[in-house]
Design a protein around this nucleic acid. Structure first.
Lengths: 189, 189
DNA sequence: AGGCCCATGTAATCTGTTACATGATTCC
DNA sequence: GGAATCATGTAACAGATTACATGGGCCT
């Protein structure tokens, strides 16, 4: 019963179709909430039935038609209630970190390779978030935008995503370097 | 089918009971995997039935008796297979970030208060991880330990947790400060 | 011709969460 | 005396993932 709130905030600043929402979850929203497209379609249907979002058909000639959704007054009220509620413990699940924790007992080369792969992925994210931030603040400086911009929520969460991915990249590089050195030292013996 | 690997790595360096494992998941393992005690009890039972861990009764006089588990050869082989497999996309779910994203539309005071609460929580984690790291490396320097220590996996994942919580704390403080300033500017009008 | 993007759903299965259930010991 | 810690499970329910299902347009 919490995916609904992630969907609602994703729809706050723009009307989106289920398909577009899924894209949005793959990009910005993924910083703080993970969900698969199938979940979003079913969640949107539930939210519409409960009147928290309102759907509207958009006819397209070159593409298949689609239904876009926006948050209703009831949806905003639900978000308001949510904002005042206590936070559930945040959830993290990361295969790679499990492998690193096991790196003393399993094939180190595999772990090193996957760390470098993840670092590359993090770099791509850093690029993406930097572009998104520039886009959101336009020609204003960050300070100026954060002081006087109209909607800074998505900017703040994107900043968090950026910092997270930078930390991730650095950790991957450092861990890989350490494991490589140890492997080399071991080989010499 | 992935919780099993998180359980296996948690048992790599020490025999633990279900109860102790739950504690471990609350501390170090929570950096990269979230699970409730109930899941761990049922997962341990499954793992034992499949022969990936071996249980052993420990009789205690002042406390209730307990069963501690260690990873078997088959368990190690399973971890080896896992290490070579492709990573599933990592999962994050964080209520607070959802609220920050909505902060232009909901009660800002609530969001600010929760950001400060989270910052305090992050500080406690930072303290805890710093202590754990010191404990693991003993009297060696970090560099020395990482080069020549026997088991550095848990140290590396703890470093990641530390960096994550520092980033978290900084982001919370900065976001709260920005939202406070905007609230003040709004009140003046 | 084959692959990718747009676009949306249902159904079956697998995981995860919450509630229920029990009971001794230690600390305040 | 009451709360917290140690200690382990089962069962019901909610949520997430995977598989199935369809179909047109665009690009190479």
């Amino acid at each position: 019963m919490a995916l609904r709130h992630a969907v609602l905030v994703a729809l706050l600043d723009e009307e989106l179709s289920g398909y577009q929402l899924a894209k949005s979850f793959d990009m910005g929203v993924a910083n703080f909430w993970h969900a698969l497209p199938q979940q979003l379609y079913t969640e949107l249907a539930k939210l519409e039935k409960e009147g928290l979002v309102a759907g509207r058909e958009v006819v397209q000639d070159t593409r298949p038609n689609k239904r876009v959704f926006k948050v209703t007054e009831a949806g905003l009220a639900e978000l308001e209630r949510f904002a005042a509620s206590v936070n559930k413990p945040s959830i993290i699940r990361d295969d790679l970190a499990v492998k690193v924790q096991a790196s003393d007992h399993v094939d180190v080369d595999e772990v090193i390779a996957q760390l470098m792969e993840r670092a590359t992925f993090a770099d791509a994210k850093i690029e993406l978030f930097s572009r998104l931030l520039r886009q959101m603040r336009g020609d204003r400086s960050e300070e100026e935008f954060l002081r006087h911009g109209e909607r800074i929520g998505p900017y703040l969460t994107c900043l968090r995503g950026l910092a997270f991915e930078r930390g991730n990249r650095d950790w991957c590089h450092r861990s890989a370097a350490i494991l490589r050195e140890r492997r080399a030292a071991h080989a010499q013996r």
